[in-house]
């Protein structure tokens, strides 16, 4: 589904990703862990099409298409979804209106007819229920005055509505207490299916107690320096990142 080869990216002339290789098959959940500043969020941003980053080398194929050729909105329409670490507050645009626009823009891209108001509302109510999203939040301006937990839940709710093939969760656990974390994780899990994949970017292992990954990768200084299964996450939780850093320094 997703094939990243030797991906390099920089921002303001500073290289952050220094040759990432990663293959993700349908249905798989990959966790990307690593210390602060290792490039985790950059990877998520580059995949979603954030324009501040300059891709300086490598390739990314998504379902056979050259992802790097597509604008952010085209990537979304192709089935990529980024759950933001810091969801943006947009005063004056209600969540429901925002999502209706998004859904119908994506349908237009795919050559489908727009959903009418009734179809859309029915779908949205079902999805809101799925992720325990309070209906009253839908009528409010997007993320405006939402608590940290509400914002993250709104991300997962949007993901449920847009049904992406590849969801990228960028530190979705940051700033969440354990109850909020569980609710968000349940939402993500309810969307798991054999043809949907996810990249879970996180600093801590605790999210992975709830969203159990198939693979865990450690990103350090812009490269994936170690890959394993969920046991690797436990090891990182127990021993921290220093031993990985030491291993890398010894080799490199």
């Amino acid at each position: 589904m997703l094939s990243i080869k030797e991906l390099r990216a920089s921002i303001e002339g500073k290289e952050i990703l220094k040759g990432i290789n990663l293959d993700i098959k349908p249905g798989e959940v990959h966790a990307i862990m690593g210390p602060n500043g290792s490039g985790k969020s950059t990877l998520a941003s580059v995949l979603a099409g954030r324009e501040e980053y300059e891709v300086t080398g490598g390739s990314v194929l998504f379902d056979g298409k050259d992802l790097l050729d597509l604008a952010a909105e085209e990537r979304a329409a192709e089935g990529i979804f980024l759950a933001f670490q810091y969801p943006v507050e947009i005063p004056g645009v209600t969540t429901i209106n925002f999502l209706k626009t998004a859904v119908n823009e994506i349908r237009k891209y795919r050559g489908e007819n727009p959903l009418d108001a009734a179809q859309f509302l029915k779908m949205v109510r079902e999805k809101a229920k799925l992720v325990s999203m309070n209906d009253s939040l839908l009528k409010r301006a997007l993320n405006e005055g939402f608590s940290g937990g509400e914002k993250k839940r709104n991300e997962i709710f949007q993901m449920a509505v847009l049904e992406p093939k590849l969801a990228i969760l960028d530190e979705t656990d940051s700033g969440l207490d354990i109850d909020a974390l569980r609710i968000v994780a349940e939402g993500v899990n309810s969307l798991r299916s054999p043809d949907r994949s996810a990249i879970v970017v996180t600093h801590y292992q605790r999210l992975l107690d709830y969203i159990v990954p198939d693979y865990v990768h450690v990103l350090y200084k812009g490269r994936i320096v170690k890959s394993g299964t969920k046991e690797l996450a436990f090891e990182l939780e127990e021993k921290g990142y220093d031993w990985i850093k030491a291993e890398v320094e010894a080799v490199g």
């Binding site: 979603a48 099409g49 954030r50 324009e51 604008a71 952010a72 909105e73 990537r75 979304a76 329409a77 979804f81 980024l82 933001f84 969801p87 943006v88 947009i90 005063p91 004056g92 645009v93 925002f98 999502l99 626009t101 998004a102 859904v103 823009e105 994506i106 891209y109 301006a141 949007q158 847009l162």
Partner: peptide
């Protein structure tokens, strides 16, 4: 706001549509 613009585009909303939504929102109050 570039961050808001990217947020909307990342949900599949084209740049011109996102711009007009943001501007409409700007006027709403």
């Amino acid at each position: 706001d570039e961050e808001a613009l990217f947020y909307m585009r990342s949900r599949g909303i084209s740049k011109p549509e996102a711009m007009s939504l943001l501007m409409f929102a700007f006027c709403a109050d």
